[in-house]
Amino acid sequence: MSRIEGVLKALKSQGRKALIPFVTAGDPHPDETVALMHALVAAGSDIIELGVPFSDPMADGPVIQLACERALKHGTSLRRVIAMVKEFRETDTETPVVLMGYLNPMEAMGYETFADAAADAGIDGILTVDLPPEEADEVAPLFAARNLDPIFLLAPTTTDERIRAISEHSSGYVYYVSIKGVTGSASIDVDEVARKVAHVHELTALPVGVGFGIRDAETAAAVGRVSDGVIVGSVLVDTIARHQTDPKALHQALTDLLNPMRKALDSLAQ
């Protein structure tokens, strides 16, 4: 059983929902990322999605674009991101880490070299925004051989046929993108998300995480009610941007943001 599967199964048996924060590695500075990851865990996170910065993040809104620019300014390469996870694993062997990014940095590193390094560092899952399963022939067996969970996106526009096909290529969980739009762009229609996620559950046995548009405890609880986990990105990255010069204040702000979400999600179990 993969670390991701283990964590999600354990949560499910307790009737709890996963809190999955997303931060861009190297933002505000590569030296701060590992401490930030530990702070996210201390604030109640179950799985961490760690963004690999890319010069042309086409699926992201301005908040995450700027985070990529900050990280790249300090030379945050994919190799360096992998090294961060390796360092994180020295003291945390429990929390699954999913790398989320775009294909080109992985292609430039070489898929096999990347897969080896990712597995060696204790990375658990890979979510490549611009790699649909149709184009994943080359990477899928490399990931599978190293127990790296391939995590794919489902969107409001994804047909039933594709939901089934994508789920077959996925392990760990599937990531349902709650809105038509880039990250951080719009408010979600909770009823519509609930309807769609319920439908996704009918088509796949995999856990469903929902991301895009979750900003506070209220939206986290509303989405947690219908899904297996909530992914929180832009609001965290925006918080990092606001406190980029003061790590202590930043950790406090992230804790203040995540704690109420954790409580709201756990209140669903009672």
Partner: peptide, 12 residues
């Protein structure tokens, strides 16, 4: 070539 885009655009 190919089709390397986020899932939202695949159907279109």
């Amino acid at each position: 070539g190919g089709r390397f885009v986020s899932e939202t655009l695949m159907d279109s």
